[in-house]
Simulated assay, not measured.
Amino acid sequence: MTSLTDPFALEFVQRAMLGGTLVAILCAVAGTWVVVRGMAFLGEALAHGMLPGVAVATVLGLPVLVGAAASAVAMSLGIGALRRRAKLSYDTSIGLLFVGMLALGVIVISHAGSFATDATAILFGDILAIGVDDLVVLAIAVAVGVGSATLAHRSLVALAVDERVARVLGLAPRLAQTVLVGLVTLAVVASYQAVGSLLVVGLLVAPAVAARQWTTRLVSTMVLAAAIGTAAVAAGLVVSWHAATAAGATIAATAIVAAGLSWALRGVIVAVRRRTASPVLSSA
C-alpha cells in the first residue's frame, strides 16, 4: 500500500491531484452533456483550436490560459457565424475551423525559435507543474461551470430532448446551445494544463461514457463521472510515477481504460442476467 501512497507525500503531486480532481469535476459536468448530445467532435475541435492562441501567448510571454481562452472563444464564435451566414452544417463548420486553427497553430510554432519544450506542454499538458494560482483558476472555473449548468439545466434538458419542444416551452434553445458550447469551452480551456490539447477530450468524454453504463439520470451521471475521473487522476499519477511515463497522457489513458472496462463489465452483467432469466422463461 505504501507504493501507492508514496507519490502523494510530495507537495507538487498533491497539487496535481487536487488540480486533477477539479478538472475531473468540471469535465464530468460538461462531458455528460457532450455524451448526451453527441458533441465529442466539438470538444476535440476546441482542444485543437486552442493551439494558435496558446502558441501566440507563449511567444509573447503572456499567460497561456488567456491565449487558450481567446482562441477557443474565437473558434466557438466562428462556428456559430459559419452556421448562420454560410449556412453550413454543424459538423462542416467545426471541421473547417478545426483544420484552420490547427494549421495556424503549427505555423506559429514553426516560426518560433526553440519551441520544442513548450510545444510538448501544449500538446500533452504538465499536470505536475500545477501551482497554487492554477488551483485558484480551476476552482473558479468549476464554480462557474457547475453554476451555469445548474441554472440552465431545464433548458439544456429540453434542448437534448427536442429543440422544437424547447422553443414551444419558451426555454430559449439558442441560449441553451450557447451555454452548452460555453461550458465545453470552459472545460477544455481549464483542463488544458492538466492533460494538454491532444488528450483533453479523453478526460472530457471517457468518464461520462463510463458513468452512462450504470445510470441514465443526468445528475447521477455527472456525479459518477466526477468520481471516475478523480479515480483516473489518482491511478494515472501513481502509474506515471512508478512507470516513469507522462502524467497527463497516463491519466487520459487510464480514463479511457475505465470507460472500456465499464462497458465490458456492463455487457457481462447484462449477458448473465439474460442467461439467468432464460431458464425461468422456458419453464414458464
Rank of each mutant, 00 (worst) to 15 (best):
L138R: 10
L138Q: 11
L138V: 13
A139G: 15
A139H: 07
I140E: 05
I140N: 08
I140V: 15
I140D: 01
A141V: 01
A141F: 09
A141H: 05
A141P: 02
A141E: 02
A141N: 01
A141Q: 05
A141I: 05
A141K: 08
V142M: 01
V142G: 00
V142T: 03
V142P: 03
V142N: 00
A143Q: 04
A143Y: 01
A143K: 00
A143M: 05
A143R: 02
V144I: 15
V144Q: 12
V144H: 12
V144D: 09
G145Y: 08
G145N: 07
G145L: 04
G145R: 07
V146R: 06
V146T: 06
V146W: 09
G147F: 09
G147H: 07
G147I: 05
S148A: 15
S148N: 01
S148W: 11
S148D: 00
S148Y: 01
S148H: 04
S148F: 14
A149H: 08
T150W: 14
T150D: 02
T150F: 14
T150P: 00
T150E: 09
L151V: 14
L151K: 07
L151P: 08
L151I: 13
L151T: 04
A152P: 05
A152F: 12
A152C: 06
A152W: 11
A152K: 04
A152Q: 06
A152M: 10
H153S: 07
H153F: 15
H153Y: 15
H153E: 09
H153A: 12
H153L: 06
R154V: 08
R154S: 15
R154L: 11
R154F: 12
S155N: 14
S155D: 14
S155V: 06
S155G: 15
S155H: 14
L156E: 05
L156A: 04
L156R: 01
V157M: 13
V157T: 09
V157S: 06
V157G: 04
V157H: 10
V157C: 07
V157Y: 13
A158G: 03
A158F: 10
A158N: 06
L159N: 00
L159E: 00
L159S: 01
L159D: 00
L159F: 02
L159P: 04
L159K: 01
A160D: 03
A160T: 01
A160W: 02
A160G: 00
V161R: 05
V161M: 04
D162E: 08
D162V: 03
D162W: 10
D162I: 08
D162K: 06
D162Y: 04
D162L: 10
D162C: 07
E163D: 09
E163S: 14
E163C: 02
E163L: 03
E163N: 03
E163K: 10
R164W: 09
R164F: 11
R164E: 09
R164A: 04
R164G: 11
R164P: 00
R164I: 00
V165T: 14
V165R: 13
V165P: 03
V165A: 14
V165H: 14
V165M: 15
V165S: 12
V165D: 02
A166I: 10
A166L: 11
A166W: 08
A166F: 12
A166C: 11
R167C: 06
R167Q: 14
R167L: 15
R167D: 12
R167M: 10
V168R: 13
L169N: 08
L169Y: 09
L169F: 13
L169H: 11
L169G: 10
L169R: 11
